[in-house]
Design a protein around this nucleic acid. Structure first.
Length: 394
DNA sequence: TCTGGGGTCCTAGGACCC
DNA sequence: TCTGGGGTCCTAGGACCC
């Protein structure tokens, strides 16, 4: 192994068009057909296979636009049970190579293979072997970026797509990074990219050569120093070995876009109740409670507002979450505003066991907490349809 | 019939406290 | 009688990521 590749031991593995590939694998009739994975009339594209992409279909594109771009595409709803299963198997494959695996999402992971090279060969050889195994075992392809830092490895995997490997050794990092568009950098989305373009900054090299203070004035302190580091490949972010869902959540929420915009208070508040129940149930399952309840409302014109209230003590009680959320809604004093989406989120989550509500929870409220637990038990035994608030019946 | 749903983090202003 | 300087919490909005 040469000097350069010894420091180059971080792999970013990205499954190619994961949702689409897995759904096609389940449906052999869709092989060689443009396929778009997405759902609902008002949804967006979750994934599209490469045939559909030839027509300009992209992830996160509104389904309506995708259908227009590629009318012959077959639209498939995602099956998360299958996707979860395939994803877990792939991640297990990675762990056979190294325990140092950071799962980013269903279709992405970082691997530190520095401890595996003696056994399995160079990082490049490991990457090729891993790709072959994933393909043989799961019937889907992936791409791998290899570098000395996670940020560069991630950019390299994008360059490797589809079904390839790209190695960026340390002495080639700036040469690799600087020609890229600023929008490629982690943390630069549509808005920031447009902002930087307006300032005459088009490539990563442009950003790299801007004085740090100037950059920070333009995009804010935190993002400014982050971009500066990313542009020079000096980002120090390290790989944290973990599975997808090991970190305790800081917040839990649920939101829902109505099939059609509505200004009907009853409809909206019924949805707020459903969402509150869903969130509180998940909190109880995870044995956490939270203090801040946030209501989110998106209007027909897509403007979105939030209103939040922080309670004196953390709660996981459906009725409390719902009460706060619906008061926040009424506090908006909306008249005939047409609403597209409502959401309920609880923040400031702490382990339930650390919450001691001395005297704050009166007898009646204890009753509601007990009622929740009874509902949870019934739901576990008989399913979600069996038990629900009276106002959600019918 | 443009634009989901799950999250995270940052910024900025005001309140409040020392 | 003229106005400091932090730190933390709360709220609202915005951007971003998968």
């Amino acid at each position: 192994m040469d000097e350069a590749s010894r420091d180059c031991h971080l792999l970013h593995v990205d499954m190619d068009a994961f949702y689409a590939s897995v759904m096609v694998r389940e449906r052999p009739d869709l092989w060689q057909v443009p396929v778009v994975v997405g759902g609902g009339q008002r949804g967006v594209v979750l994934s599209a296979n490469y045939l559909a992409r030839q027509y300009g279909v992209r992830s996160a594109m509104p389904m309506t636009r995708a259908r227009r771009a590629c009318p012959q595409a077959v639209v498939v709803a995602p099956d998360f049970e299958v996707l979860d299963t395939v994803s877990s198997s792939v991640m297990e494959t990675f762990r056979r190579i190294t325990p140092l695996v950071e799962v980013v999402s269903l279709d992405e992971a970082f691997l530190d293979v520095s401890g595996a090279t003696r056994r399995l060969g160079s990082p490049l050889e490991i990457a090729e072997r891993l790709r072959a195994v994933v393909h043989d075992e799961q019937g889907v392809t992936c791409s791998v970026g290899i570098a000395a830092s996670v940020a560069v490895a991630k950019l390299a995997s994008r360059r490797a797509k589809p079904d390839g490997v790209v190695v960026v050794p340390p002495h080639r990092v700036t040469g690799f990074l600087h020609p890229l568009d600023v929008g490629e950098l982690w943390g630069v989305g549509e808005k920031t990219a447009a902002h930087l373009h307006r300032l005459g900054l088009h490539t990563v090299g442009d950003v790299a050569h801007l004085p740090l203070r100037t950059l920070q004035r333009a995009v804010g302190q935190a993002l400014g120093s982050q971009l500066h580091d990313l542009a020079w490949g000096t980002d120090r972010t390290t790989l944290t070995p973990r599975r997808g869902d090991q970190e305790p959540d800081r917040s839990m929420g649920a939101d829902e876009t109505f099939a059609r915009d509505t200004d009907d208070r009853e409809t909206i508040l019924r949805e707020v109740l459903r969402l509150s129940a869903r969130v509180a149930t998940r909190m109880r399952q995870a044995q956490v409670a939270g203090r801040t309840v946030t209501l989110r409302v998106r209007f027909a014109d897509f403007t979105t507002i939030t209103r939040s209230r922080t309670l004196p003590e953390a709660t996981d009680v459906t009725r409390e979450v719902h009460q706060v959320a619906s008061r926040l809604y009424d506090g908006l004093g909306l008249q005939r505003a047409r609403i597209r989406l409502v959401g309920v989120r609880v923040e400031g989550l702490v382990p339930r066991a650390t919450v001691h509500r001395q005297g704050l929870l009166g007898e009646r409220d204890h009753g509601w907490s007990d009622a929740d637990r009874a509902v949870d038990r019934a739901t576990r035994r008989f399913g979600a349809a069996a038990v629900r608030p009276a106002s959600l019946l019918g």
